[in-house]
Structure formats: structure tokens, C-alpha cells
Simulated scan of single mutants.
Amino acid sequence: MGIRDTFDKAKKLAGKHSDKVEQGLDKGAEQAKQRTGGKYDEHIDKADEAAGDYVRKQGEQDQER
């Protein structure tokens, strides 16, 4: 199993469990904000939103299959 296969498998799992992945992303973002003392909140929020959008799209694609 190569890296591409592993990545594809991870995307499928993320799609199937998108709600749990999004919860984890949100928790990670909150931890990052705390550890940086609020200095990078805007950047962290933007990254969290982009990652959440990606996971939601994977979940939608998984449901279509």
C-alpha cells in the first residue's frame, strides 16, 4: 500500500465520519488559539473553516456513492 492509497483511504474515512472529524478540527483550533494567546485567531479560524469545508465535501461525495 503506497502513500496515495493511504491518503485515499483516509479521505474515505473522513467522509464517512465527517461530523466527528469536524468536532476534532474545532477542538484543535481552540487549542491552537489558546496556545498562541489569540495572536493568530484569524488565521486559525480560516484554516479550520477550510478544513471543515473539505471534510463536508468528502462526506457529501461519500453519500452520493
Rank of each mutant, 00 (worst) to 15 (best):
M1W: 07
M1R: 13
M1N: 06
G2D: 09
G2F: 03
I3C: 02
I3D: 01
I3Q: 01
I3Y: 03
I3T: 02
I3W: 03
R4G: 04
R4M: 12
D5F: 07
D5H: 06
D5T: 09
T6S: 07
F7W: 11
F7L: 10
D8V: 11
D8H: 08
D8I: 11
K9W: 02
A10Y: 05
A10C: 04
K11M: 11
K11S: 01
K11F: 06
A14L: 06
A14E: 06
A14C: 09
A14W: 06
A14P: 06
G15T: 01
K16N: 11
H17K: 13
H17R: 12
S18H: 13
S18N: 11
S18R: 06
S18C: 06
D19L: 06
D19F: 03
D19H: 05
K20A: 13
K20P: 04
K20L: 12
V21Q: 00
V21M: 02
V21F: 04
E22F: 01
Q23T: 10
G24A: 14
G24N: 09
G24K: 07
D26V: 07
K27T: 08
G28F: 10
G28L: 14
A29P: 04
A29L: 07
E30K: 10
Q31T: 13
Q31D: 08
Q31N: 08
A32Q: 01
A32M: 11
A32H: 00
A32F: 05
K33C: 02
K33G: 00
K33S: 04
Q34C: 00
R35E: 14
R35L: 15
R35Q: 15
T36G: 14
G37Q: 05
G37I: 03
G37H: 06
G38R: 09
G38V: 04
K39W: 03
K39R: 14
K39M: 13
K39A: 12
Y40L: 14
Y40T: 03
Y40H: 15
Y40G: 01
Y40W: 10
E42M: 03
E42L: 06
E42W: 05
E42S: 14
H43G: 13
H43M: 09
I44P: 01
K46Q: 13
K46H: 07
K46Y: 04
K46F: 04
A47G: 05
D48P: 00
D48E: 15
D48S: 09
E49C: 03
E49N: 15
E49K: 15
A50S: 11
A50Y: 08
A51K: 06
G52R: 14
G52K: 15
G52D: 10
D53F: 03
D53Q: 14
Y54W: 08
Y54C: 03
Y54I: 07
V55R: 04
V55F: 05
V55S: 03
V55Q: 04
R56A: 12
R56Y: 10
K57F: 00
Q58R: 11
Q58L: 15
Q58H: 02
G59P: 12
G59W: 05
G59L: 07
E60V: 13
E60T: 12
E60A: 14
Q61L: 10
Q61A: 11
Q61V: 02
D62R: 05
Q63W: 02
E64H: 11
E64G: 01
E64C: 00
E64R: 15
R65G: 07
